[in-house]
Simulated assay, not measured.
Amino acid sequence: MIASPSASAQSPGVIAPYGGKLVDLMVATDQQEAVKASANYVLECSDRNACDLELLVGGGFSPERGFMHQGDYDAVVAGHRTLSGYLFGLPIVMDTDREDVAIGDRVLLSYKGQDLAVLQVEDKWEPDKVVEAKGCYGTTSLEHPAVRMIATERKRFYLGGTLQGLELPKRIFPCKSPAQVRAELPAGEDVVAFQCRNPIHRAHYELFTRALHASNVSENAVVLVHPTCGPTQEDDIPGGVRFQTYERLAAEVDNPRIRWAYLPYAMHMAGPREALQHMIIRRNYGCTHFIIGRDMAGCKSSLSGDDFYGPYDAQNFAQECAVELAMETVPSLNLVFTEEEGYVTAEHAEARGLHVKKLSGTQFRKMLRSGEEIPEWFAFRSVVEVLRAT
């Protein structure tokens, strides 16, 4: 087990990255042409590859310095930990169908017309994707979106090796690097991370602003609202639309204790494993606390409707890992809106006999389509305006 530097070790600054140092794999501008010219193959990145590459190059996956070798891949699949002892939730690999790419080759990784990095191929293997699915996602069912992804989207071979970064992907979401986010955080204060992949409604806002008053959070803490902007579930709202809702909402609430940034991460809906992955990433972005909700990163079978994970599996697993990560979890409150007192916990509402108002996601979407008035206790007006305009 690896001991990690704690927040106090960095006081009065920002919590140290996982492993003690933020990885930066970007090549100096005057060396980029030579690095690019050294490549003897070109591979096109998928959207998921590009997200992984950006996090590797900028240090979001610190202390990892490239796509995993088979030894680390096998160790992470089997036990969420690399061979060197660091926690890691899900393996990070570059996939290809190219049989001619071999160990020792240098591969230029491109993405939508951009040259992102050069990969020094140090390992190549054909993975057992059934073992990967069972180890990472707890199931081999193609009803799980990530199992379906590795079976039908990821290619035959995996490549491992170190990276030399050339350029970051151009995105609709302007993604700040871990170093940029860390530079904007208050020194010596707790930073609470809020992860989401959907538009933010009133209950979400109440949840992450109330987290600032949790018993294990410092008085002058801030919350980092850090939505993922990579691929998510097929039926999620498109990224460009989500980006507009976040930008409009940030301007509407104008809360100095809320920091906003976007994360170039592709969701796996992996429940407990994903919770660990998100905590590691958020520590590298300077967060000391992580809000972890009921059913975090969970998913259901589209046939049976059954959940792949228990409602508290992700919470429990994250709490087990938090001490080693030198982070703390903030449980997600079960908030409901009441006629008498506004947003309160469900337990408080039940104890007081308060009248709870409900609006399901299905009802909300129907009201959006029909032009009905959306109650402001449920959704911010700015968010509704964006969703209606698309």
Rank of each mutant, 00 (worst) to 15 (best):
N220I: 10
R294A: 12
E219Y: 08
H289P: 03
G240R: 14
S218R: 05
L263S: 05
V323D: 07
Q315F: 11
G230W: 08
R273A: 12
P311K: 15
F243M: 06
E234Q: 10
T228F: 05
F243Q: 06
G271A: 11
V225H: 00
L276H: 06
L276V: 07
R294D: 14
W260F: 14
S302F: 00
A250D: 01
G310V: 10
V323W: 08
Q233F: 09
D313K: 09
Y312E: 14
E247W: 00
D306F: 07
E320G: 06
R282L: 14
S302N: 14
F243Y: 06
E252F: 00
S215A: 15
P227F: 09
A211I: 07
C287A: 15
H278L: 08
L249Y: 00
I258H: 03
C287S: 12
D236A: 10
E252V: 00
C321G: 09
E247M: 04
A251S: 09
M269I: 11
A250E: 06
R259N: 03
Y285F: 15
I281Q: 03
L303P: 05
Y285E: 08
F243K: 12
A250L: 11
A211F: 00
D307M: 11
E234G: 05
N255G: 01
P311C: 11
E274F: 10
V241N: 14
E247A: 08
I281V: 11
D235E: 09
W260E: 08
R257E: 12
C287L: 10
Y265F: 11
G293R: 00
Y262C: 09
D235P: 07
D254S: 11
A214T: 02
H278Y: 12
I291A: 12
A221M: 09
A297I: 04
G239A: 03
A266H: 12
P227M: 12
Y265Q: 08
G293M: 06
R283D: 07
R282N: 02
Q277R: 15
C321E: 02
E247V: 00
L249F: 02
G240K: 13
D306C: 14
V253L: 08
V223K: 01
N284T: 13
Q315G: 02
L249E: 01
R273T: 07
T288S: 15
Q233Y: 10
F243H: 12
C321R: 01
D235G: 03
D307T: 15
S302T: 13
F317R: 03
T245D: 00
G239E: 02
Q233P: 04
A297E: 08
A314E: 05
L212S: 04
P238I: 01
N216W: 09
S215Q: 15
P272G: 04
G239T: 03
D235K: 10
S215T: 13
F308C: 09
D306V: 15
T245F: 08
T232I: 11
R294L: 15
A275Y: 00
G286Q: 04
V241K: 14
P264K: 12
D295A: 08
L224S: 09
R282D: 09
D313S: 10
A251V: 15
D236E: 06
R294M: 13
S302A: 15
N220G: 15
L224A: 09
D313F: 05
R294H: 12
A270Q: 01
T232H: 04
L263R: 01
M279F: 10
N316A: 13
I292E: 00
V223D: 10
S304L: 14
N220W: 02
D236F: 11
P264D: 07
R283G: 02
E234P: 03
G230H: 07
